[in-house]
Write a protein that binds this DNA or RNA. Sequence first.
DNA 1: GTGAAAGCGCTAACAC
DNA 2: GTGTTAGCGCTTTCAC
Lengths: 330, 330
Amino acid sequence: MPGETKERVLAVATKLGYQPNKIARGLITGRTRTIGVIAGDISSPFYAAVLRGISDVVEGHGLGMLITNSDETLDREVAATKLLRENQVDGLIVSPCDVADSPHLREAVKAGMPMALIDRKVRGLLVDTVAVENVQSSRDAVRRLLMAGHRRVGIIAELATDETRLKDFLAAAKNQPPEGLQLLSTSWQRLAGYLEAHRAFGLEVDPNLILAVNGHSALAAQNAALVALTKNPRPTALFCADGLMSVGTMATISAKGLQVPSDLSMICFDDLDWMTFVGPGIDAIAQPRRRLGRAAARLLLARIGEAQGAPRDIRLSPRMIERGSLRSIR
Amino acid sequence: MPGETKERVLAVATKLGYQPNKIARGLITGRTRTIGVIAGDISSPFYAAVLRGISDVVEGHGLGMLITNSDETLDREVAATKLLRENQVDGLIVSPCDVADSPHLREAVKAGMPMALIDRKVRGLLVDTVAVENVQSSRDAVRRLLMAGHRRVGIIAELATDETRLKDFLAAAKNQPPEGLQLLSTSWQRLAGYLEAHRAFGLEVDPNLILAVNGHSALAAQNAALVALTKNPRPTALFCADGLMSVGTMATISAKGLQVPSDLSMICFDDLDWMTFVGPGIDAIAQPRRRLGRAAARLLLARIGEAQGAPRDIRLSPRMIERGSLRSIR
DNA sequence: GTGAAAGCGCTAACAC
DNA sequence: GTGTTAGCGCTTTCAC
C-alpha cells in the first residue's frame, strides 16, 4: 500500500491548507530566496522607481525582497546591513550613503555576501555598481521623437557654465561621442544623448534649439521654453532633460495656449521615471530609473547563482502528519 | 573554570564576526519579526509614501518588511499572499486590488494571520482598515494658513457636479460638519476640511474663493486659479485639493508673474505626500499618505502583539564552537 | 519509489 | 549562574 499513504498525506495537506515553510527550508539549504535592499528613502521618486525595477526581476524569479531605508545616514545604513544579514538574505543591493570606506559593507562582502551598488561606488569595494544611463536613455527618448517624424526637436537642459563650453561641446560631438562623458554632470550627458540620436539619423542639429537654462529652477526653464517656442520655425517637439525643466516648460506651453500633444510633442527625462512622453506615434516610455533597478537586480542574481533556478517541491512524508507539522501558521 | 568558557566562546564569536541567525530563531519561536506588504505599485507616489510610513514604524520596532507589488491584479495579489505566507511573515498589510470577496485573504486570516488593509475594505473580511484622512488633513493644512494670518484663502478643488450642490453643501456645513462625509468623493471631503478650519477660527467663508474646477485636469485647474487670482481683493493664499490642481495652479501663478511664497502662500494636498507648503510662518508638512502607512503598521503590530518587545540576545554555548555553528554566512 | 534518520542554528526546559 | 537536551520543519542521505 505505497500509493495509499501518499494520498493520505496529500489529502491532509490540502485539507489543512498546508503551505511549506521557507524559513525551515532556508535553515538547511542556507539560502532564503530573499534579497535585502538598502534604499535612501522609499518615498522619493528616484528610489521608488529603482525599487520597482528591482522588484520586477526579483519577483520574476520568485524571490522576496526585504526593504529598508537609510535616510542617507551611516548609522541607519549600518543597522540595516545588520538586520538584513541576520535575516540571512541571499544578497544585498545597497544605495550607499557615502563613498568613503564603509567597514560594514566591506565586512559583509568579505563574509561572502553577494552585493550590488546603486548610483555610487564605495572606495575599496569591488562589487558591481549601476548608475543611470543618462546618455543612452536620452538618446532613446530623442530617437523616438525623430522616428515619429520630428525634425526640429528642442532640448531644455540646465547645462550650467558659459556659452563657449557649449560651442566647444557641440563641435567635439559633431562626428563622434565626446570623450569623458562619465565625468560630466547629468544635463551634459543628456545633451550628448540628444546629439547622438541626431547623428544616428544623419541630421544636423540646429544650435538655436539647444536651450541652456543656466539655473536649476522651474522659472528659469519656463523662460528657456519661451525662447525655444518663439524660434522660427517653431520646434515641433521638445526634450526636457529633467523633471524641473519639464514643469517650467509645461507652464510656458500652457501660458501660450498650446496643448501637448496636439500642438507639439514632448518627452521628459523625469524623476518620476516616466519619460513623460507625449505625442502621436510615440508609444513607449524609457523608464531609466526602473531599468537601473532591474540591472542591479540582474547583476546580483547572477552573482547569487540564480542559475540554480527555483527549488523543487517539498517531499511530504507520513511522519509529518504524526508530528503534526502539516500546518502553515502556528 | 566557568567564566573562562564564556570568554572563549565570546572571543571566537567576535573574531568570526558572528551574527545570530534570525531564520533559525524564527523556526523555533514561530515569529520571524518580519511583516509582509502587498502594495499596488511601489513606484507610484501614493504607495511609495504609504510604504515609507509603514517602514517608519516597522523599522522603529526592529522588524523587517517584505514588499511585493500586485499591480492591482488579483493573480499577482494571490501569488504575493502565498509568497509572504511561505516566508512566515508575522503579519500582512494589504492594499487589496478588489473589494470583492477574496478567498486568499480570508483564508490567511482564518489561519490566524494578522492583517491590516489599506485604502479599501474587502467584503467579508473583518480586519482593521485605514484610509486617507481627507477631512482632517485638509483641515490641518488650511488651519496652518489661517494661523499664519491669512484671511482670504482660496481652494482649488475638482468638486464635480452642479452649482446647486455646492451651495447646498456650504449651507449644510455652515454650523457643523455635514453628515455622510465618508461617502463623498475626495475633493468634497477636502472642501469639508477647508470649511471646518474656517469654522474653528470663527471665520466666514467667501464662496467666491471656492473654485470648483469641474474636471480633473491641470488645464481646468489653471483656469480656475486664474479666476481665483483675479478676485478682488485677491486671495493671499491658496489650498489645492490635489496634485493635478496644484500643477495647473502653479502654471497660472507663473504666467501671472507671481512668485510663491513671496506673493502668495500655497498648500497642496498632493500625491507626493508633501502637503507642499509654502509661505512665511508655515513650517510643517502633513504627509497624509505617510501617516496612513504608519497607522496601518501600528494597528498591525498591536494585533501581532508587539507588546512582547524585542527578543533577548541569544545565549552562546560551547557546543556552538564544537559544532562550528558560530558563523553568519555559509 | 518510499521510509527513516541526521542535522541546519537556534530556543526552551530542565539539570547541576 | 552554566551545561545539556530535545526539537522547530525542512533537506539530504542512506536503506529498503
